[in-house]
Nucleic acid binder design. Structure first.
Length: 216
DNA sequence: AACTCGGGGCA
DNA sequence: TGCCCAGAGTT
C-alpha cells in the first residue's frame, strides 16, 4: 500500500510556501475562456506553454471561436501552430474537435469528462486541465511537471500518473486543487526542473526527496 | 508496452 | 549535436 511521505502538517506547510512563491498563478494562465484553454491544452502536448502562448495569442485574435477556426484548412491551421510541433496531427485534431463542438455541443466546450475525451486530441490529461481549471470540478491534471514535482516534494508517492492523481486528491484540500496545480506547474518550470533543478533557490528542500538523494 | 508525431530552445 | 518539452492515438 502506498503511503504519502509528508504528514498533514508538512503538506500544509509545503502548500503555503508554494502559494507564497507563486501568488499570481491564476493570472499567468493565458486564456480567457474554456474554448481557448481547450485548444491551448491540445497544442501543449510535448511543447512548452511559452510557445503555445506565442502561437495562440495571434491565432485567437483572428479565430476566437470554433466556427472561425473551421474557416481554416488543415494546412493553413498547421502553419499557424507549426512551432508547437506535431502540427499535422494537431491541426487535424483541432479541426475535428471544433467540428464536434459545433455539431454536438452547440459550439460550447462540454463539462463532462466523457464528452471531453471523445474530442480528437483530448486525452485524460487535457480533459482534467479543462475540468479543473475552467469548470472547477473534481480533477487534478497530472502532467509531467505535476508528476515530477509532487513526488519529489512528497505530496504524492507513486511511479505512475493515475496513482499520483489519487494521492494528490487525498493530500491536498479540494478547495486548493486548481490553485495547487498551477503552483506546482510553475515551480516545475522555474525551479524544480527535470534535468537541473535549481535547488539552491528552492525553499522546500527540507521536504524534498530528490534533494535528499542528490545531496547524499 | 512500444512506437510515432516534430519544431524550437537550450546546454 | 543531443536532449527535452502542460500528450494522444494506434498497434
Amino acid at each position: 500500500m502506498r503511503k504519502i511521505r509528508l504528514n498533514k502538517e508538512e503538506r500544509t506547510a509545503v502548500l503555503a510556501e508554494l502559494k507564497n512563491m507563486y501568488p499570481n498563478a491564476e493570472s499567468e494562465l493565458n486564456f480567457r475562456n474554456p474554448f481557448e484553454l481547450l485548444i491551448s491544452t491540445i497544442l501543449a502536448a510535448q511543447c512548452t506553454d511559452k510557445r503555445v502562448n506565442q502561437v495562440t495569442k495571434p491565432l485567437f485574435e483572428k479565430y476566437p471561436t470554433p466556427e472561425r477556426i473551421l474557416t481554416l484548412t488543415e494546412v493553413e491551421l498547421g502553419q499557424w501552430i507549426k512551432s508547437c510541433g506535431f502540427y499535422n496531427m494537431k491541426s487535424k485534431n483541432i479541426l475535428a474537435t471544433c467540428h464536434l463542438l459545433m455539431e454536438k455541443h452547440g459550439g460550447e466546450v462540454p463539462e463532462e469528462r466523457e464528452a471531453l475525451m471523445a474530442l480528437p486530441g483530448v486525452g485524460r490529461k487535457t480533459a482534467n486541465v479543462v475540468i479543473s481549471n475552467v469548470f472547477g470540478q473534481d480533477a487534478i491534471a497530472v502532467d509531467t511537471h505535476v508528476f515530477r514535482v509532487s513526488n519529489r516534494l512528497g505530496l504524492a508517492h507513486s511511479d505512475n500518473v493515475d496513482d499520483t492523481e489519487q494521492d494528490l486528491m487525498k493530500s491536498i484540500p479540494k478547495s486548493m486543487w486548481s490553485d495547487a496545480h498551477h503552483w506546482i506547474i510553475l515551480h516545475g518550470r522555474r525551479i524544480c526542473k527535470a534535468r537541473r533543478p535549481l535547488c539552491e533557490e528552492c525553499p522546500l528542500t527540507t521536504y524534498c526527496l530528490h534533494y535528499k538523494k542528490m545531496s547524499t
